[in-house]
């Protein structure tokens, strides 16, 4: 018994350690670069001789050619991510409530359509999306990326929220109806408060999806003042002699908000994405 337990524990570690290293080494690499001077960045050491925070100063003061729009680009990233999160949340919540609780006609069709679109690779839609945004004159406008990301995030969001909604006890709706609630009151006073964990999870999901997006951002936005930081980072690689230490410092800064958000909402992410997370 004890031996078998030990064995299964050992197997677990055998898998866990490589996975952990696989994840952590690149991050450590980024960190290492970001605190190294330009000359020692490629020294191959595990810790630089003269660790420095100067690179971060360079980034914050926008003192490099590639970083002249750092603050506006990170603001773009944030703006796009929050807008995507908010709009996706609004759409998915409305859809899930209507389909799951109000049982609107055609709900199943919408769910199947959502599932279907979910299987279409985002890259496949990139060109049509570019064309569509061009038609509406939205190219080079942050809204184009927000709308594109909402399109990509919504199907999954609707699915998750619909599943979570289905787990709310039906008697609550009936009790509220008898208590005199209109559908809007039911939505506002009963449904939303009980869905908070799932809503937080979906908001975070859409926010991170948009924050991390590169392909669509690269396609739809091209002006230095409209692009998000992800695309700005890509520009570093345009020259043969890339300032790696500054690129990595910027990347580290860029990676912090998602990490912080994920850490803050980790409970909701696990609970909210896997279940209704509501005790009745």
């Amino acid at each position: 018994m004890t031996n078998r337990k030990l064995l299964s524990e050992a197997k677990l570690w055998l898998v866990a350690i490589p996975v952990l290293l696989w994840t952590l080494i690149p991050i450590y690499h980024i960190f290492l670069f970001s605190i190294s001077t330009k000359d020692s960045a490629f020294s191959g050491r595990l810790w630089p001789d003269h660790p420095t925070l100067r690179n971060f100063g360079t980034v914050f003061r926008q003192e490099h050619f590639y970083l002249h729009h750092f603050w506006s680009q990170i603001w773009n990233s944030l703006w796009i991510a929050v807008a995507t999160g908010a709009i996706t949340l609004a759409i998915a919540t409305g859809a899930a409530f209507a389909i799951s609780r109000l049982k609107v006609k055609g709900g199943r069709t919408v769910m199947n359509a959502a599932l279907f679109t979910y299987f279409i690779p985002a890259a496949f839609l990139a060109v049509p999306m570019y064309k569509a945004m061009g038609t509406y004159g939205l190219l080079n406008n942050r809204w184009s990326l927000v709308l594109a990301m909402v399109t990509l995030a919504s199907p999954y969001a609707i699915w998750v929220l619909k599943q979570a909604s289905d787990k709310l006890p039906w008697e609550l709706d009936e009790a509220a109806r008898i208590d005199g609630a209109t559908p809007m009151q039911l939505f506002r006073l009963v449904y939303l408060p009980l869905m908070v964990p799932s809503l937080v999870a979906i908001f975070t999901y859409a926010l991170l999806l948009a924050w991390n997006e590169y392909l669509y951002a690269f396609l739809l936005l091209s002006h230095e003042n409209t692009i998000p930081l992800a695309v700005g980072l890509g520009h570093f690689l345009a020259s043969d002699d890339s300032p790696w230490e500054i690129l990595m410092a910027t990347a580290l800064i860029y990676g912090l908000p998602p990490a912080a958000i994920y850490y803050a909402f980790r409970g909701y992410m696990v609970g909210g994405l896997t279940s209704g997370a509501v005790k009745s």
Binding site: P169, E171, L172, E174, A175, A176, R177, I178, D179, G180, A181, L189, V190, P193, L194, V278, K279, S280
Partner: peptide, 27 residues
């Protein structure tokens, strides 16, 4: 339902989990 002037008690109680007893009763 709301205009029939009835009140119903359910087997599963169907209390609003996010509201206090007072808020449930006054809903």
């Amino acid at each position: 339902s709301k205009d029939r002037d009835i009140a119903m008690v359910f087997q599963s109680y169907a209390l609003y989990p996010h509201l206090t007893v007072a808020d449930n009763m006054g809903f």
